[in-house]
């Protein structure tokens, strides 16, 4: 299992990937964010959770710095500016005991919420993934 972000031909990176990136750029490669650490941009503890979701549900928007990966990826490096080296993600936290600015790392979880309990067709998407754990 990887936490796949997509790099586009203009050097930008998004998580998740899309058929076209910012400014219509085409996807060129994927980057496994699970090998990086990230910083908490903002976080919340949600107490009114939908069917199949843990309660309370600690959530954060985090920012990865993948400039190292940009250096390695010589093919698209030329167009990659500073902005292209950072990529945000949203995900569950392992704990509600965090602050904005904390450093976190992704830890793998088999099932982030119970497939079949909510409205989403279970077959239509993945249910495993990563939580963010403070370092």
């Amino acid at each position: 299992m990887t936490m796949e972000a997509t790099r586009y031909d203009d050097g930008t990176i998004t998580y998740p990937g899309h058929p076209r990136g910012p400014d219509g750029a085409e996807p060129v490669e994927t980057i496994d964010l699970s090998e990086y650490t990230a910083e908490v941009v903002t976080w919340t503890t949600s107490t009114a959770t939908p069917p199949g979701v843990r309660e309370p549900n600690h959530l954060a928007i985090v920012e990865f710095d993948v400039s190292e990966a940009s250096d390695d990826a010589s093919s698209s490096r030329t167009q990659s500016g500073d902005d292209g080296a950072s990529v945000r993600a949203i995900g569950q936290l392992t704990t509600g005991d965090v602050e904005t600015g904390d450093e976190v790392r992704p830890v793998y979880v088999d099932e982030l919420r119970e497939p079949g309990a909510g409205i989403r067709e279970p077959e239509s998407q993945a249910w495993d993934g990563y939580r963010f754990e403070p370092l």
Binding site: G21, D23, A25, R120, E121
Partner: peptide, 14 residues
Amino acid sequence: GQTGVPNALAHDLD
């Protein structure tokens, strides 16, 4: 169980 597909498409096509 996927709504808001026009917005998803706008994003996916940039």
